[in-house]
Amino acid sequence: MKKLREKIADAFDVPKDVALGQSKIVIIGEQEVNIENYHGILEYDTSIVRIKTADKIIRIIGSKLEIDTITDEDIQIVGSIKAVEWGAFECLP
């Protein structure tokens, strides 16, 4: 089912994040991560930020992490970023 939707999206050249409800993550250098279309913040600390998106959790590991901007759809995180990881649903600590 998902494959079919993906194929239709490709055929009509609709951007995938709009068609499939996925998040768009833009990483600029080692300093900035923009996540569009997120669902919520799970954890926020200066060295770890966990963001929930449609079906995955994105973990951003680094130091001196700050949230630059936060709206109801996008979130922008700046700081010295060491890693950006995806994981499945985890239990909240």
Binding site: Y44, D45, L65, E66, I67, D68, I70, T71, D72
Partner: peptide
């Protein structure tokens, strides 16, 4: 939809 920025721990 309350706009926040410069959030720092």
């Amino acid at each position: 939809r309350i706009y926040l920025w410069n959030v720092r721990h």
